[in-house]
Design a binder for these strands. Structure first.
Lengths: 274, 274
DNA sequence: GTGGTTTTGGAATATTTATTCCATTTCCAC
DNA sequence: GTGGAAATGGAATAAATATTCCAAAACCAC
């Protein structure tokens, strides 16, 4: 009568919980599997749900959910929920109150603007986490890591990103050249066989950036694009395309997500080169 | 027997809830006030608490909490909690799972790096929300709004911020000049009476930036500083000092918070000038 | 202090929610 | 198909939780 199936203890942290979940999901009978899937997809709602709600969501009877909790090693649903209720409070404790206060300064007040930009930045970062394309990123890294020199171009609102990339490449000893358009000098003849281009542009796309990318393409150099949509004009010329979902507030975008992606790219390239 | 005390309906959003809370807190008898205070301080935990827990936290009997909910206009605690349970999911739905997955790519993998930078950016923004000094911001805005021309200087890793500021000022038709150090040209003679300087620098502080700020100071021009600590060398020369708590990951900082603050400042200045 | 009003605490009750149990069904090896 | 084991659904029960109610206490104006 011994239950030797599950000598493992119940997960005590959310990390462990996630691991355990992916670990056991295969090889679970139909109903229990529905539970696992639904819970995995709604892990953040466990803390505020009832057994009945979860069961309805997974389209199983409540008893199935109970069994599932027990398979995971808990005595029941309540014990499992406890984990999530306690862990709950991710940076949120005071943050939203504070934002509210800032906004109370009145629409258009400096503090209210700040609150809006902070919020836009945060949303952008979260959206990036959700939408980032790992494959494209890996490919971009490999393209740039193999280049003799990286030519960085980004103008107008993409310029800050380009300059930060240039700074990071410099710090990581990656040979890089920033095409900044100073003096309307055109440096396209600096492109040499073995080099690669990293082009950054957002709608309305800057002509010079697209032209440089096209030029590189014509000469057979690989191009990595950092842009806002898969339909961007850079898509045609790029060997790897990274899109970044930036939330605008008013006429200006936050750049938070773009910069996060850009630095990750640059650092990855830097370490790939050793 | 009519209850004409509370013709107002129960708050239907968290915003309204907060407003209502601050509105009624004064003029509440002792126990109810304890409830109000404790709830205000733990607003983010309502969704995952029971009446008994809340009551214990506020050091009142459960019935006091019930009464409090009813005063707010709800039929009881459950109805009030419903609001918070539903509103719960602030961008978090899938975000943390996703971050975890990105990190699973392995330490040092491009995705893992990206996850780290996203997280650093988010933490920085939250920290900024908590620590932002509204008074200093308002003062910085008034100083810059009154200037004939704004001189922006920021080098090395502050350079991207400076360029973005220059971009925003340009878009908002604020006369601004970016001191970029191109060609090692020194533009300090461009400073004229009536102008103001916006200097950005982080440890290790760039000499040129400090020098320009000092120069402006000597000539009696106002200086606004955007820096990392109140002890920054700019503190001595600045008329308004904005500090920004940026979370580093590895050798690089995210800039998210700095940029959010910078744009808010620029847009506020732009609209203050009409 | 007195009478009336408001506030309070806690015990009693109602409701919701979790959990167990077992008869029925499904699955699978033979 | 048959027998045995595993899985399932739902009804019954147990536990936790919310809610009400009222007697006692505190408060306040006079």
């Amino acid at each position: 009568m011994d239950d030797l199936d599950l000598p493992t203890a119940a997960p005590a942290t959310i990390e462990e919980f996630r691991d355990r979940l992916t670990e056991i999901t295969d090889g679970l009978p139909r109903r229990l599997r529905q539970c696992a899937d639904h819970i995995a997809a709604n892990i953040d709602r466990i803390a505020v749900s009832t057994v009945a709600e979860l069961a309805a969501g997974a389209d199983v009877p409540p008893s199935a959910v109970m069994r599932f909790c027990q398979i995971l090693g808990y005595s029941g649903f309540s014990e499992m929920q406890k984990l999530f209720r306690e862990a709950y409070a991710p940076g949120f404790p005071d943050y939203s109150t504070r934002l509210k206060n800032l906004k109370d300064g009145g629409a258009g007040s400096p503090s209210a603007l700040l609150a809006e930009f902070i919020e836009a930045g945060r949303l952008s970062l979260e959206a990036l986490a959700k939408s980032a394309d790992e494959t494209a990123l890996a490919q971009a890294v490999s393209v740039l890591a193999g280049a003799d020199m990286v030519h960085v171009i980004g103008l107008r609102r993409a310029f800050p990103v380009a300059t930060y990339l240039a700074y990071v490449f410099e710090k990581m000893s990656v040979p890089a050249m920033l095409h900044d358009g100073v003096g309307k000098l055109d440096h396209r003849h600096a492109l040499r066989a073995g080099d690669a281009v990293l082009a950054i542009t957002f709608a309305p796309y800057s002509e010079e950036t697209i032209a440089l990318a096209q030029d590189a393409r014509d000469r057979g150099l690989p191009v990595v694009a950092l842009t806002d949509r898969p339909t961007s004009p850079l898509a045609r010329t790029a060997d790897a395309i990274l899109t970044v979902p930036e939330v605008d507030f008013g006429a200006f975008r936050s750049l938070s997500a773009t910069i996060a992606l850009a630095i990750a790219l640059a650092v990855a390239v830097g370490s790939a080169r050793g």
